[in-house]
Design a protein around this nucleic acid. Sequence first.
DNA 1: GTACGAGTTGCGCAGACTGCTCAGCGTAAA
DNA 2: TTTACGCTGAGCAGTCTGCGCAACTCGTAC
Lengths: 161, 161
Amino acid sequence: MTMQSVQLDALDARLVEMLAVEPRIGVLELSRRLVVARGTVQARLDKLIARGAIKSFGPEVIPEAIGFGVMSFVTLEISQRYGHTAVAAHLADIPEVLEAHTITGSGDVLCRIVARSNADLQRVIDQIVGYEGIVRAHTIIALAELIHYRTLPLVKAASLA
Amino acid sequence: MTMQSVQLDALDARLVEMLAVEPRIGVLELSRRLVVARGTVQARLDKLIARGAIKSFGPEVIPEAIGFGVMSFVTLEISQRYGHTAVAAHLADIPEVLEAHTITGSGDVLCRIVARSNADLQRVIDQIVGYEGIVRAHTIIALAELIHYRTLPLVKAASLA
DNA sequence: GTACGAGTTGCGCAGACTGCTCAGCGTAAA
DNA sequence: TTTACGCTGAGCAGTCTGCGCAACTCGTAC
C-alpha cells in the first residue's frame, strides 16, 4: 500500500486522459490508439490502480440532478474533548455530508453538504450540530459552479515533468 | 437538457450502488443480480445518463497518489470590476485548481487546490493572485480526510422517499 | 562481457459481453 | 376501448476480455 513511484510518464497520462474522455472505450481500443500492445495498456492500468492513482471507475453522480440542488461548505468547530474520530462517525451517518476534512485556521472541520433546498439545508445543519461534540457551524453556500471538479489538467501537468 | 424527473426509484438506486461498488460488473451481470431483464438495466442506465444524474464513468484520479499530497481550500476576494467569468477562465488555466465556486459570505470564490508540498502551494497561490482581478486569497489547508467524497449514501437516501 | 529482471510485443484461444432488434404483455392514462 | 410506455425474454453477429506464452530490448549488477 506504499505509493513510492509517484511519477506518471506520458503513456500513463494519455491513458488516463483517453479514459476520462471516453470511459467505455476498452483496453483493446486504447492499445490501438496509443499504438502499444494490449498487454502494455493492461499492465499500466493495473499498476495505476494498484498504486492508488486511480481509485475506481465508478459512476459520477451529480447531486443536483437527483434533487439536491443546494451545495454548501460548512466549517465546524468541535469540542476539544471529542476526538475527530467521533465527529467523523457522526458526519458519516448523514447522507448529505459528501466529504469532510480537518483543517487549519479558525475552524476544525470543513465539510461539503448538499440539500434539496435552503430550508432543507437548515434541517441538515441542525442534524449536524445536534451532536454534542460539535460546538458550532459556519455555513457558506455555493452559488454557482465555476469549475467542476476535475483532475485531467493535473494529470497532464504531472506527466510533463 | 432539462432535468425534471428528478426522482430515483429503488431500482435506480440499487443500480448505481452496484456500479459504484463493482464498476467493471457489466450490464448483463447487473441484470442477473437485480433480477430484471437486460434491456431494463440498459434503459435505466441510459436514462440516468441522459437525465444527467450520472455524469460519467471516468477514472477517479487521486491527486495524492500522483504526487500532489497537499490539499487546500482557498477563498478568493475578487475585484468588482472583473466578472466571475474572467476569473474563472484564469483559474481554469491552472491545473492545480481542481474546482471553483462562487459563494456567499465574506469571500467571493472558493476553490480547491492541490500542490506537491507546502512550498509548492505557495507557488500555486502566487500564480492565482498574480491575476489582477483577484484582490486577495485566504488559504485553508486540509490536514486529514475524514470522509472521502461520496454520493452513495445520498443516492440511497434519495430513493427511500 | 555476461547474466538477470522488468517491461513490452505479438499471437492465439475459449468464453463472455455488447448493441440491436423484435414480439408479447401488463399497467395506467386518455 | 384505445394508446402509450415500460418490462420481459430471446436471438444474432461482432467484439472484447482474461489468460498464457515465446521472443526481444534495455538497464543494471556482477
